[in-house]
Amino acid sequence: MRNSRIFFLLALLIAVAAIAWYISSHRASPGEVTVYYSKVDGQSEIPWTISARAQQPGESAAAYAQYLALYAASQAVTGPPPDVTAIRFPAGTRVLSASVDGSTVTVDLSPEVNHPGGALNESGEFKALIWTLTALHGVDRVAVRMAGSKVATLNGGSFELDEPLRRSDW
């Protein structure tokens, strides 16, 4: 009698745990990403946090990571609100795609990014982008493409894009 009561309690506990796990894993949790922008001194990175959509029921972790990478990259390229003084990507620059492979995010930017300029804006633009993407969990390198192609450098200040960039490149 005593044994059957214990078995019943155990079965109940297991059932409650399973239900709790099912509910929690299928409940939308709020997401957020940290986006950086570069101050015009070319040295300082300022973070701000923006909300992102939550992982959807049934959405795999890999798919959600892809989404976050694209979302964060797009936010970094768009830059902070207009009233904030920051180094900004050239007008018209868009993120065409972003993909995650292990610890590397590959970002494909539209050709507008290759706008004649100098070292300050090129460095500041990419510093913000790389800081933003490497703030994502498990990401430490960012490879940059332009309109689907690998490029060695930008034309203006000759910022090098040959190899994936890390925070230590600054």
Binding site: A119, L120, T153, G157, F159, D162, W170
Partner: peptide, 23 residues
């Protein structure tokens, strides 16, 4: 003077010798 800034500029990175770029 904005000072000395580390930046991955091609001409500096691919020089075998000490190199600097002055903007």
């Amino acid at each position: 003077n904005n000072g000395v800034i580390k930046d991955k500029l091609y001409v500096v990175n691919h020089a075998a010798m000490p190199a600097a770029l002055v903007e």
